[in-house]
C-alpha cells in the first residue's frame, strides 16, 4: 500500500475504483434490460461478453480486482476512522449535518458485498464451471432461459430487490462524492450531482424492475 500511504491518496483510490464499478453497473444494466426488450439480443450480447477473450481474460479480472480493492480499502478506512475516535460521544447528532447514506456506507457496502457473493454463486460460478471446467460446447441460446430460471424463487428475488434498494443509498452518496474526492467541485458540480442522484435511483430500480418482470412473467405462463 505504498502508493496509498496518505489519506488523500486513499480517498482518490476509493473514488476511482468506485467510478469504475459505477460504469460497469451501467453497462450490466443495459445488457440486462435487453432481456426484457428482446431475448435474442440478450443472448447475443451475453454470448459476446462470455466468449470474447479481451472481456473474459483482461476486463473480467480487472473488474474482480476492482470489487475486492474497493471493499478491502473501504473496510481498512473504516477501521482507521473508528480508531480516530476511541471514546464515542454520549450524544451525537450526525443526522442534523449529514445524510444517512453518507454515514452508513459500510453497512450498505457490506450488504452489496453479500449480494455479490450470492450473485457469483448464482451466475458467475456456474458460468465458469460450464465453460472452462465441464467444457460444454458454446451455446448462444442458453443465457436467457438461465436468467429467467434464476428469477423463479421469490426468496432470491426478494434478496435481489433488497440489495438493490441498499445500492441506491450507496450510490446516492458514493457517486457524487467520488467527484469531490478527485478534486472536481466547481460550477458544474450541481448539475453533475443531479445526474449522479438520478443514476443512483434509476439504475438500481431498473435492476429491480427486470427481476420482478421475469419473476411475475413466469407466474403467468
Amino acid at each position: 500500500m505504498g502508493l496509498l500511504k496518505s489519506s488523500v491518496a486513499r480517498k482518490v483510490a476509493m473514488a476511482l475504483s468506485g467510478l469504475f464499478l459505477v460504469f460497469f453497473l451501467g453497462q450490466h444494466f443495459v445488457i440486462n434490460l435487453s432481456s426484457v426488450v428482446d431475448p435474442d439480443t440478450f443472448n447475443s450480447w451475453s454470448h459476446f461478453m462470455g466468449t470474447n477473450g479481451l472481456i473474459q481474460f483482461v476486463l473480467q479480472p480487472i473488474l474482480i480486482f476492482g470489487v475486492i480493492f474497493h471493499f478491502v480499502l473501504g473496510f481498512r478506512l473504516e477501521l482507521q476512522n473508528n480508531k480516530a475516535r476511541a471514546i464515542r460521544y454520549k450524544s451525537y447528532k450526525g443526522q442534523l449535518s449529514s445524510s444517512w447514506a453518507s454515514r452508513n456506507m459500510l453497512i450498505t457496502g457490506v450488504v452489496i458485498l453479500a449480494f455479490l457473493g450470492l450473485h457469483f454463486y448464482d451466475f458467475w460460478v456456474p458460468e465458469i464451471v460450464h465453460k472452462y471446467i465441464e467444457s460444454h460446447p458454446a451455446d448462444a441460446e442458453r443465457y436467457f432461459p438461465e436468467l429467467v430460471h434464476k428469477f423463479e424463487s421469490p426468496v432470491r428475488v426478494g434478496l435481489y430487490c433488497l440489495a438493490f434498494v441498499l445500492l441506491i443509498f450507496h450510490l446516492w452518496h458514493g457517486f457524487s462524492s467520488a467527484f469531490q474526492s478527485v478534486g472536481f467541485n466547481n460550477k458544474y458540480s450541481r448539475g453533475l450531482k443531479g445526474f449522479t442522484r438520478l443514476y443512483a435511483v434509476l439504475i438500481p430500480l431498473g435492476f429491480v424492475f427486470i427481476a420482478l418482470y421475469h419473476h411475475f412473467n413466469q407466474l403467468h405462463h
Binding site: 489519506s7 488523500v8 480517498k11 475516535r85 445524510s99 452518496h173 478534486g183 472536481f184
Partner: peptide, 26 residues
C-alpha cells in the same frame, strides 16, 4: 480519520468553510 465527504464539517463550521476547499486540497 479519513474524510468520507459526509459534509458534516461544512454544516457545523462556525465560519462556513466550504467543502470546495477539500476538493482544492485534493
Amino acid at each position: 480519520g479519513n474524510c468520507t465527504n459526509t459534509g458534516a464539517c461544512e454544516v457545523e463550521c462556525p465560519k462556513g468553510i466550504s467543502l470546495e476547499n477539500i476538493a482544492r486540497m485534493n
